[in-house]
C-alpha cells in the first residue's frame, strides 16, 4: 500500500458534504419560524384561494364541485355587499384621524414630560389590555336605554329611552369611537417608541440655534417620526376592519339596517352563520385583495416621504 501518496477520495467526499451542510444550516435555523408560518399562514391562504373556486362544505367523502367565479358572483350579488363595502370605507377613513393622527400629539406631549409621563402612558395603554369582549358587554350595559348609566343621564335632561345603537348613524359612530378608544393607547406607545429613538442632542442643537418648539416639531421630530407614522398607518388601516368585529358582533350584529356591518363581519356571517364556505372564502380573497391594493397605494404614495436616517 502506498502510504506516501495522499488519497484524494475522502477529502473530495467530505468537502461537498460540509458545503451542503453549510448551505442547509441557515434553513435549519429558520425552520422553527418558517414551518409554522407556512403551515398556519401561507397554506391556509392558498387553501382559501382554492376554496373560493369550488362548492364544497369541507366534508370528507363529499365531492367538491368547481364553480369558477360563481362564489365571487355570490358575494358581489349579496344584499349585504354594498353596505359592507361602504361601511368598510367609513371604518378605514375614520381610523386615520382617530387612531393615526390624534395619538401623535398625545405621544409628543407624554414624551416631553420625560419620566413624569409614565402615569399617562399607563392610563392610555390600559384599554389595550382589557378584552374587547368585556369592553363591548360593559358598553352595552352603559348604553342600555332603560337601565343604563347613559339612559339615566338622558332622563335627567328630559330624554327618554334613547339608544345610540338604535340608529345606523349612532351605532357606527359608537363602534368607531369604541374601537378608537381601545387602540389609541397602543398607537401612542408605538409613537413613544419612535420618539425614544430621536437623539436629544439634535433637539438641543436646534434650541441653541433659537428654534421654537413648533419648529423643532415640524422640522425635526415629525420627519424623524415618519417611519413610525408610516407603520402605524399601514397597520391601523389593515386592522381597522377586524378591530371592530367584536363590538359589531356583541352590540349590533351588523345592524341596525346593515348600518355597522363590514367586509370582515360579512365574511364571518357567510362562512360561520350560513356555513357557505365557498362564498366565505371568496369574500376573504376579495378582502385580502382590497387590503393589498390599499397597502400598495400607500407604499407607492408615501414611502418616498419617509426619512429613515437621522
Amino acid at each position: 500500500m502506498d502510504v506516501g501518496q495522499p488519497s484524494a477520495t475522502p477529502l473530495a467526499v467530505v468537502a461537498p458534504r460540509r458545503a451542503r451542510f453549510r448551505g442547509l444550516l441557515p434553513w435549519l435555523f429558520l425552520a422553527p419560524l418558517l414551518v409554522p408560518l407556512a403551515l398556519f399562514v401561507y397554506w391556509p391562504l392558498l387553501h382559501t384561494f382554492f376554496l373560493s373556486f369550488v362548492r364544497w362544505n369541507l366534508q370528507p367523502g363529499v365531492p367538491m364541485e368547481f364553480v369558477g367565479l360563481a362564489n365571487y358572483d355570490g358575494v358581489l350579488a349579496s344584499t349585504l355587499f354594498a353596505d359592507a363595502a361602504w361601511n368598510s370605507l367609513i371604518y378605514v377613513l375614520a381610523a386615520i384621524p382617530l387612531k393615526v393622527l390624534l395619538p401623535l400629539p398625545v405621544a409628543v406631549f407624554i414624551w416631553s414630560l420625560g419620566t413624569a409621563g409614565g402615569w399617562y402612558r399607563t392610563v392610555l395603554f390600559l384599554p389595550t389590555l382589557i378584552s374587547f369582549v368585556i369592553v363591548a358587554v360593559v358598553v352595552g350595559w352603559m348604553l342600555n336605554p332603560i337601565a343604563g348609566h347613559v339612559a339615566a343621564l338622558l332622563a335627567n335632561v328630559g330624554g327618554g329611552f334613547g339608544n345610540p345603537l338604535a340608529s345606523p348613524d349612532g351605532a357606527i359612530v359608537t363602534i368607531i369611537l369604541l374601537s378608537g378608544w381601545k387602540v389609541f393607547g397602543f398607537n401612542v406607545l408605538l409613537y413613544l417608541a419612535g420618539l425614544a429613538s430621536i437623539r436629544r442632542d439634535l433637539i438641543e442643537a436646534m434650541r441653541l440655534d433659537g428654534a421654537s418648539d413648533w419648529t423643532i416639531l415640524r422640522r425635526l421630530i415629525w420627519p424623524l417620526l415618519t417611519p413610525t407614522t408610516f407603520f402605524v398607518l399601514i397597520a391601523t388601516v389593515i386592522f381597522s376592519l377586524q378591530q371592530v368585529f367584536t363590538p359589531i358582533d356583541i352590540l349590533t350584529e351588523g345592524g341596525p339596517e346593515n348600518g355597522t356591518t363590514n367586509f370582515f363581519y360579512m365574511v364571518y356571517q357567510l362562512a360561520f352563520r350560513t356555513f357557505d364556505i365557498g362564498r366565505g372564502a371568496a369574500g376573504t380573497v376579495l378582502l385580502f385583495g382590497l387590503l393589498l391594493v390599499i397597502t400598495l397605494i400607500k407604499l407607492r404614495a408615501l414611502d418616498k416621504r419617509v426619512h429613515y436616517q437621522q
Partner: peptide
C-alpha cells in the same frame, strides 16, 4: 324601548 335582547333582559 329599542334595544337588543340582552339589554331588555337586563
Amino acid at each position: 324601548p329599542v334595544a337588543n335582547d340582552q339589554q331588555l333582559t337586563a
